[in-house]
Design a protein around this nucleic acid. Structure first.
Lengths: 210, 210
DNA sequence: GGCCTCATTGGACCTAGGTCCAATGGCGGA
DNA sequence: TCCGCCATTGGACCTAGGTCCAATGAGGCC
């Protein structure tokens, strides 16, 4: 189960809580890294783009609060899931946290079991996210290797347009389209239009406009 | 804005709340339908498969509770969004409700504005859901018109397999594959493999196994 | 038994997609 | 200015996809 190299970041202004949570997390074989403020965490910004990770975050903290930090992180390409812990949270805050994608919201005091379970859930979630982000990135990388024209042709191809139609739309010879098309298939590493369509779908590539 | 024929279902064991909420909802031009218990609602089961709708649900009720009703409904093909209202909810319940997909969770007393805004959000969400469910259904309908063999061939086509490969996999002549394939394109109303792949993707059709 | 649907094929034929070789012209860099 | 990348085409040729007409055989249904 507990593969190493999965990190749990802990952000709480109470350093004794940081310590005890770190101990708890490490006791189940996970890595722990604690910060006593959102600012400190943001500065270190332990980019978790490789290994699954999650964040155990205190809601109320001086300076940048938990919700703000969560929002901040959500811009990241693969934001790590957040578990909120709070001494005196209320329902509106809980709702907001959950709407922003929190895995859960625990009120202090909470039992270790609940937290560990949520952590497991969060790590699992982040793992899936990382895998999917990684796949998308690989596709994007290939697309970056295309020339402008090739991308344009690809846009039409994935809509099912015939070479002659594409040629007409771009105002070039059908022959030329064939050449571009062939290069697209080669650079994207696919052998069929079906595969190409799939790639573009999973990478969120919008088809040719108009 | 407020198109008619959008219905807000209200389920609360306190009939005076039902009345006042119904009045509020109607005051902004929406239809309201109130029930004083989950059982009553389930019995009437006003199937909301056509028009956008949402549910304003009391958390605590004798008999079937709000969370249970929400779970019950979530099996539906196009479950209508739920807005919880509660006199004495707590954070764990809020978390559970949100995890189960609730739009929001309001504590009594709440101001009308908040509720109306959440209702708008919920109706909008349900509208989008209905549209997408509707599209998927249309595609499924076409797929139902396919024979077993045709579905099988389609499964291979959308993976980009060549006719000869499909023929080999099915142990039949390439010629036969062409015939099936042609019928698939016709019955699915598409002119290209690209479109076919798209349809199957949005309908969640799993490609041929093995 | 007669009718109908479906799966299967053959043959003839046409179109679309794709590759190889070759060549031209524009553009930005070294 | 010469080189390399890119867009564009032509011509020859081959393969894959697709249609029309026609026909056979297995199962089901009335």
């Amino acid at each position: 189960m507990s593969t190493s190299s999965q990190t749990v970041f802990i952000v709480d202004d109470d350093s004794s809580i940081c310590r005890s949570l770190s101990r708890l997390v490490r006791s189940v074989g996970l890595e722990a890294q604690a910060f006593t403020s959102a600012e400190e965490f943001l500065e270190a910004r332990p980019e978790s783009f490789q290994r699954p990770a999650c964040l155990v975050l205190d809601l109320q903290m001086p300076g940048i609060g938990g919700l703000e930090l969560q929002r901040e992180l959500s811009d990241s390409p693969a934001p790590c899931p957040v578990i909120f812990i709070s001494g005196n949270g209320d329902i509106p805050l809980t709702v907001q946290a959950m709407k922003q994608g929190a895995v859960t919201f625990l009120s202090k005091p909470f039992d270790d079991e609940s937290l560990l379970q949520s952590i497991g859930e969060a790590l699992e979630k982040h793992h899936r996210l990382l895998v999917s982000v990684c796949q998308v990135q690989a596709i994007r990388d290939r697309m970056d290797g295309l020339t402008e024209r090739e991308r344009e042709v690809m846009g039409w191809v994935i809509t099912g347009a015939l070479n002659k139609q594409i040629a007409a739309n771009l105002g070039i010879a059908e022959k030329t389209v064939k050449v571009h098309r062939g290069r697209v298939m080669e650079k994207m590493h696919v052998a069929s239009v079906a595969e190409l369509v799939r790639l573009c779908e999973t990478a969120g590539f919008a088809e040719a406009g108009k």
